[in-house]
Design a protein around this nucleic acid. Structure first.
Lengths: 236, 236
DNA sequence: CGATAAAATGACCAGGTGGTCATAATAGGG
DNA sequence: CCCTATTATGACCACCTGGTCATTTTATCG
């Protein structure tokens, strides 16, 4: 996870001792996650860091570059996390994979809550340039992640064979994303109690949600299965 | 749709000629929708309006009040729109109601695109106070809207009787919301082509999505129905 | 008309912003 | 130890912000 060769960092920063680099990025991430891009203040950062303001501009050139560098870092973390889940669930049942992917999302947010905050705050602030690029990268990756899993599910006969993979990807993206949002933003959970819920509650709700994805809401379908619940128990 | 008695408006503004009031609110809505709350500039507004800066503060007291007033207005519009759809689909099939609700959302956004933008930009910028209140109002209303419809669907036997209404509300909220977001924010549609799509495409995709909500994704369920498609044709 | 009340105005304010750059401190090499 | 190149520094800049308020303009009414 080296960030040395980032396009947004000047060599001066690269040569810094590791600890100092980490501290700087940590404070910057904290500031951006708390305030969003616009309200984040370089003055406040250097105040907390105890370094000169000029140094930040020596390291990154501009506020925007600093933000992009952090974003780049964040994207790398997400990609790595998704890759691991994908590889770690290869060949498993489609709905199990789905449940584990969602669970992994929750873990990621627990581990890097500030990074998820930064992402959320950027989501609908289309004003600043490159948002399109940033968003494109993330969303496209989410599709690149889901599509193959869906297609495998169809190939294996777990999903209806007439399933439109694009529609399914959109649908799953919607539900998974909202689940994560509900977990860490108040009033997004429609009273389900997802907001900052504990492990147990999350696990149960993931199971419920996946069941609903599986069977839909209409009456007259097949009965609810127990497979997701069973397989999730193992990893707690 | 009178806004006269708003808590955020001073009498001086109320007494203004209707046209001037409209123009002021129009410019303010435009500014907030483009820039979000933080970046929106009172200077720019009065520049475009050709009035003195002091006047805005005479009318609203503060930037925040102006924003709240507009938000209040927006919430009223949404409530009205939802009420109409609900009343206008009373007694119809659950999934038809769902499709029509989503369609109504699209109409609303087409008619008031800037208001939806304001809402989106506020969504995850939790910095400024009262965001909690604003969000609470909107989300709770969304639940108040969906819950009864779901319960009627269960009572009528269209939905599985063991359906958890809270979970269903969350689930539908997730899908409907994302559908609207994908319609008006780039890269949110997972390649489905929803972004600024035309009437025909939207209608088709609504149908597809509702079918997926109905039947789920698993193989072996009942075949897709034609009822939603048929009933939607009538209103085009 | 004149007097009074109400509304519009814009110069002005303090505070904050991202960003700069001459200068000072430090590090590295001979 | 000195000289040079690199890095750190913070005073300073122009700019913009939301907000104020004394003053002027406009409307109201007798």
């Amino acid at each position: 996870m080296s960030m040395e060769e980032s396009a947004y960092v000047r060599p001066t920063f690269t040569k810094l001792p590791f600890d100092k680099k980490e501290r700087i990025l940590d404070v910057a991430i904290d500031e951006f996650s708390r305030c969003g891009y616009e309200k984040a203040s370089i003055n406040r950062m250097v105040g907390r860091l105890g370094i000169a303001k000029g140094s930040i501009f020596q390291y990154f050139g501009s506020k925007k570059n600093l933000y992009f560098h952090i974003f780049e870092h964040a994207v790398a973390l997400v990609k790595r996390s998704l890759k691991r889940v994908k590889a770690g669930t290869e060949g498993e049942d489609f709905f199990i994979r789905l449940a584990k992917s969602l669970q992994a999302g929750i873990y990621f947010i627990r581990r890097y809550p500030r990074i998820y905050q930064i992402y959320l705050k950027m989501l609908f602030q289309e004003d600043f340039p490159f948002r399109a690029d940033l968003l494109k990268t993330i969303r496209l990756f989410s599709i690149d992640y889901l599509r193959p899993i869906i297609e495998e599910g169809v190939a294996d006969g777990q999903l209806r064979e007439d399933l439109d993979p694009e529609l399914a990807a959109f649908f799953l993206d919607a539900v998974l994303d909202r689940f994560l949002q509900a977990y860490c933003v108040a009033y997004m959970d429609s009273g389900l109690g997802l907001y900052q819920a504990d492990e147990k509650a999350i696990e149960a709700r993931i199971k419920d949600c996946i069941e609903m994805v599986r069977l839909g809401m209409a009456a007259g379908g097949p009965p609810a299965s127990e497979s997701v619940a069973k397989s999730m128990e193992h990893r707690a």
